[in-house]
Design a binder for these strands. Structure first.
Ligand SMILES: NC(=O)c1ccc[n+]([C@@H]2O[C@H](COP(=O)([O-])OP(=O)(O)OC[C@H]3O[C@@H](n4cnc5c(N)ncnc54)[C@H](O)[C@@H]3O)[C@@H](O)[C@H]2O)c1
Ligand SMILES: NC(=O)c1ccc[n+]([C@@H]2O[C@H](COP(=O)([O-])OP(=O)(O)OC[C@H]3O[C@@H](n4cnc5c(N)ncnc54)[C@H](O)[C@@H]3O)[C@@H](O)[C@H]2O)c1
Lengths: 213, 213
DNA sequence: ACAAAAATGTTAAAATTTTAACGTTAAACA
DNA sequence: TGTTTAACGTTAAAATTTTAACATTTTTGT
């Protein structure tokens, strides 16, 4: 199944950021037993226009059906393939503090294909401790684990001052993508990806929203 | 200090989403003792162009200085005022699971003006338990606390199926903004704001980034 | 078999966002 | 005191993103 050369060429960032939401919605609908969904219905539940939905889905290798819409199961599969979450992706987590431990204990990531294969921390008091099924490892072990297990993604949950050095260690060890939970802005080589998940920034955006009625 | 009518009218969403990052950067620089920062230097550390930075900052009620740039302290203050984080904002947290407990224990939110005044959960096994300085309260207490303490923001950290009913309860009780940490898409009246902070969606976006070299 | 209708995929227009260009201001210094 | 220059604020162009319009397809029903 060679993916269509045109559709797989490059999907705009604005679209890529919405694809996970369509995937979540398709999963929820399929689990509820819904077999078909229209662009209009997807748009209404996600706060978009049906036009945007159809435009977005034209980027993935999947066809809707006139008069019916999109098969929820088909859509789920095609979106997973497009995003690259149709197979397991190995991850490591660095920083076993309050947030890091919550992430390590969150089984849903594993069910969705994100397999955490190691949890790391620099504090001697934390190293060796158990977090769910993990034993926290020291930072000296990081590079070896990344190499041996071909780890693709590093999840960074350390204090913001430590984020850039940790990012550098992860990239040097061979990780290709970083999920950054800190307030720091990470500089990485062009061939690596960074996605920020900053809760404080979201709260501040919300503060602006509640200020002006 | 009446804010300028034009600048305060309405700031585009694309800009509002970047303002928290400028604020974080201004804070970090000021704490390091840096007094001035140029649009070019801000742009380089945040991965933007200097043009975008100047355009963005033209929306806030603050002037740079020719040949020097922006005063870090002044910028921090003006951004805080624009976003509405120059005074405390009361919040409640609903869902005292793994993630909710991490958020409740995160002192930085309080230092940044987001004061959590209550933690709530529906599970009898959890209600009454201590989470840091909080005692988890039952959902029957929620409306009263929101009303009495004039709570502005609700942080939702419950399983996704429960997110919409919890959102409804929060809005009915009088909250004006929701921070949604679940995969659900929340429907709220037009006068309320929702900001999503979805870690799984960020991971999926990252998966696409690491897939295509 | 044919007509009607519902929903797609696509084209093109509208709106927004980003970037470049440049005139203006104020600091530094001869 | 005047000149140079770094960096701002603003205008306008370029690029991207969103929305609307509509021709096409496929099902349903007569
Ligand atoms: N806790 C939250 O709810 C929350 C919410 C939003 C953002 N964050 C951010 O996530 C990050 C982690 O937050 P937290 O509350 O878990 O902090 P924390 O202080 O509880 O944990 C940080 C952990 O990182 C470890 N660490 C420090 N330097 C390290 C290094 N160089 N290499 C490896 N490990 C190192 C520490 O030993 C500690 O265990 C912070 O940047 C924080 O701002 C946290
Ligand atoms: N744990 C993580 O690291 C993580 C990461 C990303 C997203 N999330 C999302 O955050 C949410 C919470 O995650 P978690 O790991 O803390 O889950 P959890 O199961 O540990 O905790 C959820 C809590 O919500 C409570 N709850 C359930 N229904 C409720 C209701 N109707 N009203 C009030 N409380 C209710 C439960 O009693 C429980 O204490 C989930 O939607 C999850 O997908 C979690």
């Amino acid at each position: 199944m060679e993916p269509d050369a045109i559709t797989s060429l490059k999907i705009p960032g604005s679209v890529v950021r919405r694809l996970p939401r369509y995937l979540t919605q398709a999963q929820h609908l399929r689990q509820e037993g819904v077999e078909w969904v229209s662009s209009l219905s997807l748009a209404e539940t996600l706060g978009l226009t049906s036009s945007t939905v159809r435009q977005d889905l034209s980027h993935i290798d999947f066809q809707g059906v006139s008069k019916r819409g999109y098969s929820t199961a088909g859509l789920e599969g095609a979106l997973a393939r497009t995003l690259g979450v149709d197979h397991d992706i190995t991850c490591v987590l660095v920083g076993a503090g309050n947030l890091g431990r919550a992430l390590a204990l969150h089984d849903e990531f594993g069910r969705q294909g994100f397999k955490i294969v190691g949890v790391f921390d620099s504090a001697p008091a934390v190293v060796g401790k158990k977090v769910g099924r993990f034993t926290v490892q020291g930072m000296t072990e990081l590079a070896g684990v990344v190499r041996e297990q071909k780890v693709e993604i590093g999840i960074i949950s350390v204090p913001h001052e430590a984020a850039q050095p940790v990012a550098d260690q992860l990239i040097t060890a061979g990780v290709r993508g970083l999920l950054n939970l800190t307030t720091a802005h990470l500089l990485v080589p062009a061939e690596a990806s960074v996605v920020d998940a900053r809760v404080l920034a979201s709260l501040r955006e919300l503060a602006y929203g509640v200020k002006r009625r």
